[in-house]
Design a protein around this nucleic acid. Sequence first.
DNA 1: ATACAAAATGACAGCGCTAACATTTGTCAA
DNA 2: TTGACAAATGTTAGCGCTGTCATTTTGTAT
Lengths: 335, 335
Amino acid sequence: MKANLSDVAKEAGVSAITVSRALRHPDKVSKKTLDKIMSVVDRLGYIPDPAARALAVGKTNVIGVVVPSVTNNVFSDVMRGIFETSEGTKWQIQLGNSRYSPLEEERLVRTFLSQKPAGLILSGLEQSDATSKLLMNADCRIVQIMECGPAPYDMMIGFSHIEASRVATRHLLDRGYKKPGYIAARLDPRSQRRLQGFEEVTTAAELYDRARIVTTPRPSTVTLGCELTADLLSKAPDTDAILCNNDDLALGALFECQRRGLNIPNEIGICGFNDLEMMAVANPGISSVHTHRLQIGQQAMSMMDAALTGSGPDPSVIDVGFDMIARQSTNRAAR
Amino acid sequence: MKANLSDVAKEAGVSAITVSRALRHPDKVSKKTLDKIMSVVDRLGYIPDPAARALAVGKTNVIGVVVPSVTNNVFSDVMRGIFETSEGTKWQIQLGNSRYSPLEEERLVRTFLSQKPAGLILSGLEQSDATSKLLMNADCRIVQIMECGPAPYDMMIGFSHIEASRVATRHLLDRGYKKPGYIAARLDPRSQRRLQGFEEVTTAAELYDRARIVTTPRPSTVTLGCELTADLLSKAPDTDAILCNNDDLALGALFECQRRGLNIPNEIGICGFNDLEMMAVANPGISSVHTHRLQIGQQAMSMMDAALTGSGPDPSVIDVGFDMIARQSTNRAAR
DNA sequence: ATACAAAATGACAGCGCTAACATTTGTCAA
DNA sequence: TTGACAAATGTTAGCGCTGTCATTTTGTAT
């Protein structure tokens, strides 16, 4: 039923290898035979078998992508960028969900590597030792995404989370908030660095108070944002600003404060992280650190493509930065 | 460097096929040789080459999943269910993003089929003619998700969107709203059926008004919810309830109405669709039709697994239903 | 017309694995 | 002890493709 190379070859009156060449290196085949072969390919609906090709070449067109979550808005934007940019290229995206587990990540990397992928896209700087070893010896290109840091395996694109949260914290202090708190869910390494930035800056300003930091290992949701805010306000009722580890929590904080009749931004300021689209239209608009998630996905994929096709330079490490977006929720009246 | 079957075989003092059997059909190999082989496999860190296996067997362990969006909350929940449930099985998920384009879907199905997948998971009832033909002749199991309808290719899991929106519309009428409007973005087939349900019920109640239906092909966002609401209220200012095609739009509607100082639910009622987690904690809580997205993903995957491993019955079509969740946003005071 | 290089095409082997069949080994009853 | 049968293991071939090298064809300069 399904045609293979030699079927096409027979039909076109050439040898199999010529058909292979026509498909892979059209410039190595005369115009005339190329045309004939292509017409036969069309007529027979021939589609090359990727497994056979992979076996012969020892490489696939697969690019493995490991993300810690498929539901998190941040990663879905990144994924969208990757998918978008991969379209029209020969690269085939294969997605793995590590669920924030280094062990699961290791398993995924192992599985991906066994498929002889052309490339691997991973999140973050730190991997388990075993994963690191696998990656160092891996015979494929690697892009680490989301963060920027020293010693990439290969290529890297992201931004400094600690610097971003320093900027957000300073923003709160600049606006005159004196008792800022911090709420965070599921502390992955990036969240930890963000918390660290907050601690640094508040400590330097002598405004650090351990009681105003509320965290939980549970996954982040808007509902959890409400709960953590309630927690924070019961432990430290005089808190006058909340820096949220992400925007889900920030929206929850907003809802919770509204319910309590707290005036935002005067009685309490709220600042999120990531700047999800909805932050701009909430009431009041929520200040947030805008992160270039889509761009990270897009550029990760185009770096990968450039590296694999050998086209263009190899920028290797890109810091896409971030933007502090100040909105109503931290726009405290001068006092 | 990397060990293959015959390396293992040599080391274990058996033939290659015995190693293959030890790995694939351990019961066909004596306990003694099995142990020996396994220890060599461990020692050499042998990992089978999936491409070679695929070529020999003419089938892979890949299950192709085509979703229309990777950012939409609905599909990220479904994806999560699929990934979760695939863990621990031998099935390898391969994700494709059709971006709501039937042509892109066709391309993806074609690509997936060329890889001889074990199964395919697709969204919705309708595919392009070409896609349909591919699927009917496909040598793999198929699960259609999100909707329930007649004539599945193979298996199916979802719910009736038209019935769900009928119920939501009746809910609004039951609560005494007399001038309900409808807002929708990107009208995929499921959204269209939801709109249809709204039209049916309002027409039957003699409350249908074309001017109260505002749609746009743009992708759905909270911001767009604000805009569509503004549109609706400018075209038909006396609208007293908004049924939103999804929860992003509903949240946008809430924000917009708040900004206009409209009392929710008394001056205007708002009802969403999907019941995202945040609906419950918004102010006021937003009524919504709860859909079992995670469950759809999970069950789609377990149906697939059962069908492929031949274990368990073959329920073929499952309607997971939906639940109308009434909250404050439609709780109009009796008048 | 001849020589020669370059372009186009082909023959062959092999990537790593497994299905199908073939052979050996083990077990048990007569 | 022998034969019959089952269990365990092995041999062979081939899945569909492409790299390498060999051969043929074409184009060009003399």
